[in-house]
Design a protein around this nucleic acid. Structure first.
Length: 162
DNA sequence: GCCAACGTTGGC
DNA sequence: GCCAACGTTGGC
């Protein structure tokens, strides 16, 4: 029996890799995660077909820029073995990789970012981790209702505004 | 650019 | 196992 589909929020700095980059590439490997909690989500819980809110951090404004989908489940992040990579981890070995990544594919780019400000102001998004001050986790689980609400806001934003 | 919040490291 | 020092994240 297939596991129930889950929903996630994944952060990226648009200066590094934006939703437009993802749209251009079609899909990408999510390299460079070096936080154990985020790694565990990818390695243990993310499944093909899970849906993703693509979040632009360190952006103006910060917020959800579009949607993506998991298209390959966890496998070792190759950059940990590469001494020339800034993600190199000298303690990782091929036999015992420490870091994993998934692949995600582009689904949709919102006309306008659903800003963090908007997310914080919406009562229906109460409890979203990204609203919490000091929440730095780059991969966060998201409730289905919150995912749908953000998607609605993202689709409404471009067309509905004066 | 600032800096608060957080995670990791390493001496003890 | 404690915790100070350090590095990073990310909103502002």
């Amino acid at each position: 029996m297939a596991a129930k589909k889950r929903y996630w929020l994944m952060k990226s700095e648009p200066g590094t890799y934006s939703i437009d980059d993802l749209q251009r590439d079609g899909s990408t490997c999510w390299e460079g995660v070096r936080n154990y909690q985020a790694r565990n989500f990818m390695r243990d819980e993310m499944r093909v077909g899970d849906e993703v809110l693509y979040y632009h951090s360190n952006a103006s404004p910060p917020g959800v820029a579009g949607l993506a989908r998991v298209c390959r489940e966890a496998y070792p992040d190759h950059t940990q073995f590469d001494p020339s990579s800034k993600y190199h981890d000298p303690k990782a070995t091929g036999d015992e990789p420490r870091w994993f990544m998934v692949d995600i594919e582009h689904v949709e780019t919102f006309d306008d970012v659903v800003s963090l400000e908007e997310i914080k102001a919406d009562d229906r998004l109460d409890g979203m981790l990204v609203r919490q001050r000091g929440q730095r986790l780059s991969i966060q689980p998201v409730e289905a209702e919150h995912f749908r609400r953000i998607r609605t806001l993202g689709r409404r934003a471009g067309a509905g505004r004066p």
